[in-house]
Amino acid sequence: MRWLRIAALLVVFGFLVGAAVWTRPFGAPQAMEMDEHFIERSQEEAAANNVVTAVLFDYRGFDTLGEATVLFAAVVGVALVLRRWAR
């Protein structure tokens, strides 16, 4: 049983190392059209030098809204569970 576990660990480890080595080269994505669009036009469309912020709050604003909703749900859940004991 012990050897089985070690063998399973080795198989998973080898699979991960192989995936890291043989997949796409690091920093070379397959499709770059959207990247080029964001990098070229975020300064005139979103008026921001930081492209990451332009994507986060302008182009993909709904993602940020969902993130804020998740955080709000977490806080409401913690406050509901702990309201009796945390006084």
Binding site: A46, T53, F57
Partner: peptide, 15 residues
């Protein structure tokens, strides 16, 4: 600069 972006940053930061 930035238009809405700094205001939204402040709102999200506060939140």
């Amino acid at each position: 600069t930035g238009g809405m972006l700094p205001l939204m940053n402040w709102a999200v930061g506060l939140k």
